[in-house]
Computed example of a mutant assay.
Amino acid sequence: MPVVAALAAGTLLAAAAPAAAAAAPTTTAATTSAVTAPKGAFGPYGYGGVRLGMTAKQAKATGKIVLKSRGHCSGWDYKAHRNPRDEIGLYISARRGVAVIFAPKDVRTPRGIGTGATLRQVKKAYPGVKEEVSGWYATAPGNPKAYYYFGVNRRGKVEALALGLKNQDCVS
């Protein structure tokens, strides 16, 4: 299964990811606040009008997402960025609200990282990034409760990007 499909299905985010992201230091000088993040940037609090921690009701009220699957963690897609049938765009936890958001193609973090970026670029933009079994994780600068996941392929390029709550309970 390609990494992107597995990631979107929520099977690759390691349970250790929030712990690794919590341990990842951020530099004050390089920290980008939500106020200065480029318009449309992926994170540090959410993407496309949907914020981490929003309840399903609040997220649905934005009019930007559509339900794909029900459960303890419901699966949703952005209306503007529909995924194939077997992939999910974001997960909403019954307990924690919007828990994990997967970046649509061509979307970048406030520090300019998106699919196609090299691992070297990720390490430069996020000096505290740590490697885990399922990928690379860094605390989202400006939001200590969140982490970025960078799924890097064998060629050293980012092919999947996610933003999640460190205490999320949707993907392992």
Rank of each mutant, 00 (worst) to 15 (best):
P110K: 01
Y78Q: 05
P127L: 12
Y78K: 10
K79F: 01
L119C: 09
A94Y: 01
K79H: 03
R85M: 03
V129D: 03
G97T: 05
G128W: 09
I92R: 02
L119Y: 00
Y91S: 13
G116F: 10
P104F: 09
A117W: 02
V98E: 00
A117S: 15
V107R: 12
T109K: 01
V122F: 05
T109A: 14
I92M: 03
G89S: 04
G128I: 12
P104S: 08
K123Q: 14
V107T: 14
V100P: 00
V98I: 04
T115S: 15
A99E: 15
T115A: 14
E87K: 13
V122A: 13
Y91W: 15
T109Y: 07
Y78P: 02
V107F: 03
R108M: 06
G89I: 07
Y126E: 09
V122D: 08
L119F: 02
A117I: 00
Y126Q: 09
Y126H: 13
S93L: 10
V129S: 07
Y91L: 10
H81K: 10
G114E: 08
T109R: 08
R111D: 01
G128A: 12
Y126A: 14
I92W: 00
V122E: 11
A103P: 07
T118C: 05
R95I: 12
Y91G: 14
T109D: 04
D106W: 06
V107E: 09
R85Y: 09
V98L: 11
D106T: 05
K123L: 08
G128P: 02
R96H: 15
V122C: 13
A103D: 08
G112A: 11
K79Y: 02
D86Q: 11
A99I: 14
L119A: 06
E87L: 05
G128L: 14
G97K: 03
T118I: 01
Y126W: 12
V129M: 11
V98S: 01
T118R: 14
H81E: 06
T109I: 10
V98G: 02
Y91N: 14
A99W: 03
T109Q: 08
D106A: 00
P104Q: 06
H81I: 00
P104D: 08
L90V: 08
Y78N: 11
I88P: 06
K79D: 01
R111Y: 04
P104K: 07
K79V: 11
F102G: 13
R111Q: 12
G97P: 10
K79A: 05
E87C: 10
